[in-house]
Design a protein around this nucleic acid. Structure first.
Lengths: 206, 206
DNA sequence: TCCTGACTATTTTACCAAAAAAGTCGGACG
DNA sequence: CGTCCGACTTTTTTGGTAAAATAGTCAGGA
């Protein structure tokens, strides 16, 4: 919208805040520190943002919007629906990696992150529904309800994510653990792709 | 097994404790109350159980063992593997319903429940692996690794469960919500059964 | 062996005061 | 006017402590 040469001050603040949040987490970053990083006073921050939480939300929302942009591009593309679903999963995992840093330092942050994810989940369901619907239209997927299936996929991803971080957060999470998580998500994707593929047979629903 | 404590006094205690725990949760039940229910002194409880937590663990473990018995019977049975997997899911949901009551009153209980579930998860993976392996042997299922797939299934179930209670526990959970959860698990089962069915085609793994 | 009453040890709760951080405001400066 | 600061007020977190509640122990009795 307004990126002329003059640095958008809000963007600067968001960037500085992002660095701090990624390193220490919401609770362990003070507004004074962010202000000091930028060489301005805390009061200046409050000129641009009404609250600390608002700064944090904007940092996360920015990442989510980048993700949304990438997914929209994928949906617009002309590959087949299964390929799009694969791409979606790939981007989803990338987003998670980015948000991983912001989400540390638990407890005080949890309700906020929950909010952020809940709001964004509607968007994600929309994307998944779009991909599934297209696949259905093109006879690449066979699903009863694209909406319902999209929601199931999202809930499984969310569930695996929550489960993962619930069992891992004690102690820093090693990249090996993250890889295990990635692998499991991709294994789910494989089963899912067959499970919703159009050319099914041999299984009777009871 | 038990000629230490002759009669079923332990069972009596477990039963009384179960009633209390199911109604109020671990944190809101005192040993004095359980003892009073049985008309004995608190010290008597400590004759049979070394700690309050141990009583709780035994209550939960009893339910899990009942579940294990039922699953073993199912595995021994002679139905087809997909049917066994369906039965497994059905029993799994039933177990969850039973444990639901015990698991209320959060925070103090969480690490204990986590322990209980974690220990039991090895058993559950074993059951799932057995069902999947049999299906594979009988050419009813096509899975690369029964073990890995069993683990994935279990993690998805665990994830959906955690996700569900994480988003629902504020406020009492209504039976309508539980039904939504059940439906989602069963929808996952449908996709899973197709996804691992032997007669797959038309989808290339990339 | 099974249990009790009376004990001790530990955990939870309530409270408060001090410190830290969030958030506000009148006014300066270009 | 839009941008920012210093000084201010308000809210939240922290730390410490005492009382209450509850877990857990023990010597001994039936």
């Amino acid at each position: 919208m307004n990126h002329q040469h003059s640095h958008d001050k809000r963007a600067d603040i968001l960037e500085a805040a992002h660095r701090r949040f990624a390193r220490f987490g919401l609770a362990k970053v003070t507004m004074d520190e962010i202000a000091a990083d930028l060489g301005i006073s805390k009061a200046a921050l409050y000129y641009y943002f009404p609250a600390k939480e608002d700064v944090f939300r904007n940092v996360v929302a920015a990442e989510q919007q980048d993700f949304a942009k990438r997914i929209e591009a994928i949906i617009e593309g002309d590959s087949e629906a299964p390929g799009k679903l694969r791409e979606y999963f790939k981007q989803h995992l990338a987003l998670l990696g980015t948000l991983l840093d912001l989400g540390r330092a638990g407890d005080s942050i949890k309700p906020i992150m929950r909010d952020l994810f809940r709001e964004f989940s509607a968007t994600e369901t929309g994307f998944l529904t779009a991909i599934l619907s297209e696949g259905k239209r093109r006879s690449e997927f066979a699903v009863d309800s694209s909406e319902q299936t999209a929601q199931l996929i999202q809930h499984v991803l969310q569930g695996l994510r929550i489960r993962f971080f619930k069992t891992m957060t004690p102690g820093e999470l090693r990249s090996a653990d993250i890889k295990a998580y990635r692998d499991e998500v991709l294994r789910f994707l494989d089963i899912l792709l067959i499970g919703i593929s159009h050319s099914r047979n041999g299984v009777k629903k009871i």
